[in-house]
Structures are given as structure tokens and as C-alpha cells.
Write a protein that binds this DNA or RNA. Structure first.
Length: 414
RNA sequence: CGGGGCAUGGUGUAAUGGUAACAUACACGCUUCGGGAGCGUGUGAUUCUGGGUUCAAAUCCCAGUGCCCCGACCA
């Protein structure tokens, strides 16, 4: 993409109401636009990042048998009355609207809807297990939206629900999901700590949260530096300074961002909603369920909280809006001509490249924007580099630039 | 929902009772071009909304709204 065609503009200063690093940098870079507290529009650069994260999740969910669907945002009241949640628990944070006498909820989560779909389609143990997911905008009346993308009223989420014929099978999949989640966050450039957390009355056993250490986080966890043990402070039966039950290191207390969670649901929903299957022994049994969420927009915010410096964002490669930020120093003559040619080649070679072809910007401003936007690799073409038949390459997370001969460029990028 | 703070061009700020200023951004021209360049010209604000006090309100008073932070809450 040509930067001259990008309609968004960078800001030197962040709007004064934005206090969190993620919202400051994302707004300054033109990734997002604030509509109201906890509600942000995604602009071209921001949407690319969001889609990249979503696609990593799709790949990893599909790898472990996930089937993607798209449920509706509108949710019928009667389903929520079956589980008693229309007016209690999550129902309290549900946005509701009215059509005549009919009340409609805007989806804050989808256990009821999917359980309803599954009970219509699934009758036999031979059809289980099933792993169904969607990526969708969720709506929740948060009492206090805050911290940019970290806690919104409208946010993008992946939610997967698993359906099993036995507790044993559920546990097998739960462990598979744990590994898949770790891989997803690793690919997003995050080191997520698997943290034991409360079952919120759903289960006597622990659930697991995926926590990313960051000062802006609203959770507090007690964790081992080796990351083989972590508990949310809410339920911790140990404290900072004690020894890790697993490896005997001293435990720390730290703030963190919950980017995902996995949750045994047992028969909580299948029971209330009569979701049965006929087992091998001919008996009618309740379907055992699990739920697995990842806040995609929150993950994007968490990445910025973790990966930035005083100049701007430093995107991990797999989720960056582009792979290469290609900058021409001089906007005329042979620099311009060579840049155009190289850009076309990169682009046709399937390299995601943002080409700063803006003629009315000085090099200082181009570099500043480049650092702010945070694309992993910067390639610069100038009279100076052309004198050596080269381009200059610098990674966003490194200080030093190096010269690479133009002839070698395509090979270098692979 | 409790506590605190803030509200002035797109963005950041100034103006403490006398009719909105500066920087930046944007447009045009010239000069520039390896880290947010220089000069000139220009566009752009019912000072959040409503009411009150006053000859006169961005400024004082009342109410509302929005936003930020802390707490409560967070399948």
C-alpha cells in the first residue's frame, strides 16, 4: 500500500483523555478512532492487525478440530430465561432492546444460543465431541470501561464451545486447548502465563486464565518466575515471597492482562436447556461442555502495552499490519524511480509493504511515523544507498541498520 | 454505583469578568530533504449543553452531559 493513499494521519501528541499506552499509541498511529468510552472503530492499519490476530486464532482452532460458525448478535430472551441468566449474572451486563412487546438481547456471550443449536442437531454419542467457535463483536455494559482496548463495551472476541459425551473426553480436550492457546499467544508475540482462577460457581475445580504481565493490567497474579505455577490473587492459596510449589523458586506478585480463558462448564447449560445425547449404552445423558475465550481486541491492546518504546509501537511480525515499511528519502530523480520499481517488485512478490511515497514529507517525519506505526522491518532508499547499489534495512526492534545490495534484496527478505 | 479530576479549532495548550491567542496539523507558493526543516500567505472555534448573575461570561453560580483516574463490578 502507498502511504500517500492512506487516509489516516499520525498525531504528535495523544488526546489528553487517553491515559493508557495502548490507546495513546494506537490513536496517534491512526490504528483506531474513539467513538465513546470503551468503544473504538478500527481504521485500515488497526483492522489489519485485528484480522491477523483473528487468522492466527482460526488456524490454531481449525488445527484442533474447531468448526467456525457465525451466530447472531441479536439473542432471543426465551433462551436466556431457560438458564435464568436473562436478569441475573451476565444478563445484568447485557444490552437489551425492545421491538413491540418483544425483548432482544445483544450478545455478551453465546452459551445459550449454541447449546440451543447443538440440541437441535446432535442426538448421538457418535456425533460428539464437537468444537464450535466464532469470532464476533461482543457487547457488554461494563460498569467502567477503561484502558483503551483492554476493557471495552464493544469488543472482538473468539469464543469456542466444546461438547463432549464424557468428563474424560472433556479433560483431554481441555489440555489440547491449553497448548493451542499458548501457541496462539506466542505467535502474537505474547508470553502468556497459564494462571489458575476461580470457577465462579460453575466448577469446584480451577479454571485457567492466560495472563500477560503488564503494569496496565487490572488483574494481580501470584506467579513463579519460571512460569510453572501461577494463581490469580483472587483465589491464591499462597502469596508473594513463598516458594513455588512446583520448583521452589520465590513467588512474585505482578499485575497482568487476561487475554484468554478456558473454562469447564460441566452440565450447567445442558441441564437447564435439556441438551441430551443418547450414549452407547442407550441411555439419555447430558452433554458436557467447555468454553474457551480470547479477547482479540484486548490482545491487540496487550501487545502494544508489552511491545513499544518511547517512539512508538513495535509489532511482532505475525500480527504487524505490514511486514515492510519502505521509505524513499528523496522524492524525485533516480531515488524515486528506483523506489517505485522496488515497491512494485516487493508487492508482486507477496510482501506486505507500506510504501512511504509521500512527496511533501521530510525524512525526519517519515522516520518518526515509521517508528510510531511500528512495522517490523524498515527499508530505506536514498542517494546515499543507491551510490552503493544498495538499500538500508533496519528492524524496528534493533538499533543498527545495515546495507543490502538491491540484487540480494529478494533473497534477503526470505 | 461511590470518590476525585477534566471539558477552548483535527490535536496539544493560553487567556481569572471587557468579546478568543499560540503551537501543531491542513491548503497554496518559494527554499529545503538521513530523524517531526525554514519563510510567507491562507482555512479552520456558537469556548460541551441548558439556565442564572452582570452593562459585559471561556472566565462567576446552578443543573445536565461527556471523558479520564481510583474503588465496587468483571461469564
Amino acid at each position: 500500500m502507498r502511504q500517500s493513499q492512506l487516509f489516516t494521519k499520525t498525531l504528535k501528541e495523544a488526546p489528553k483523555d487517553e491515559k493508557s499506552i495502548n490507546s495513546q499509541l494506537l490513536i496517534r498511529g491512526g490504528f483506531i478512532h474513539k467513538e465513546m468510552a470503551g468503544v473504538y472503530s478500527y481504521l485500515p492499519l488497526g483492522l489489519k492487525v485485528l484480522k491477523n490476530i483473528g487468522n492466527i486464532i482460526r488456524e490454531e482452532m481449525d488445527n484442533i478440530g474447531g468448526q467456525e460458525i457465525a451466530m447472531t448478535v441479536f439473542q432471543p430472551k426465551h433462551l436466556w430465561e431457560e438458564t435464568g441468566r436473562w436478569s441475573k449474572t451476565v444478563g445484568e451486563v447485557m444490552y437489551k432492546c425492545r421491538e413491540g412487546n418483544k425483548e432482544i438481547g445483544l450478545g455478551p456471550t453465546h452459551e445459550e444460543m449454541l447449546t440451543d443449536i447443538i440440541r437441535h442437531h446432535v442426538k448421538s454419542y457418535t456425533e460428539l465431541p464437537l468444537y464450535i467457535y466464532q469470532i464476533q463483536t461482543k457487547f457488554r455494559k461494563e460498569p467502567r470501561a477503561r484502558s483503551g482496548l483492554l476493557r471495552g463495551r464493544e469488543f472482538l472476541m473468539k469464543d469456542l464451545y466444546s461438547f463432549h459425551s464424557s468428563e474424560k473426553d472433556f479433560k483431554r480436550y481441555y489440555e489440547i486447548m491449553k497448548k493451542a492457546y499458548s501457541k496462539i499467544f506466542e505467535r502474537c508475540g505474547l508470553s502468556a502465563i497459564i494462571t489458575e482462577a476461580s470457577g465462579s460457581g460453575f466448577t469446584k475445580e480451577y479454571t485457567h486464565e492466560f495472563q500477560v504481565l503488564a503494569p496496565e493490567g487490572e488483574d494481580v497474579i501470584i506467579c513463579c518466575p519460571k512460569r510453572d505455577f501461577a494463581q490469580n490473587q483472587e483465589i491464591a492459596n499462597t502469596k508473594a515471597g513463598n516458594r513455588c510449589p512446583s520448583c521452589k523458586n520465590i513467588l512474585n506478585k505482578a499485575r497482568s492482562i487476561e487475554v484468554g480463558n478456558i473454562f469447564p462448564l460441566g452440565v450447567r447449560y445442558s441441564k437447564d436447556m435439556n441438551a441430551y445425547f443418547i450414549d452407547r449404552d442407550g441411555k439419555k445423558k447430558l452433554i458436557i461442555m467447555g468454553s474457551y475465550g480470547i479477547g482479540i481486541s484486548r490482545t491487540m491492546g496487550a501487545v502494544v502495552e508489552v511491545h513499544h518504546d518511547e517512539k512508538g509501537i513495535i509489532w511482532p511480525e505475525e500480527i504487524a499490519p505490514f511486514q515492510v515499511h519502505f521509505i524513499q528519502v528523496e522524492n524525485t530523480g533516480r531515488v524515486k524511480k528506483t523506489s517505485e520499481r522496488l515497491y512494485e517488485n516487493l508487492w508482486k512478490g507477496n510482501c506486505e509493504v507500506l510504501y512511504d511515497d509521500r512527496a511533501n514529507k521530510t525524512i525526519g517525519e517519515k522516520f518518526a511515523d515509521c517508528d510510531l506505526i511500528g512495522i517490523p522491518m524498515r527499508i530505506v532508499v536514498s542517494e546515499r544507498t543507491l551510490a552503493k547499489k544498495s538499500v538500508e534495512i533496519k528492524k524496528r526492534n534493533e538499533k543498527k541498520a545495515k546495507l543490502v545490495e538491491i540484487k540480494q534484496l529478494s533473497r534477503f527478505l526470505k
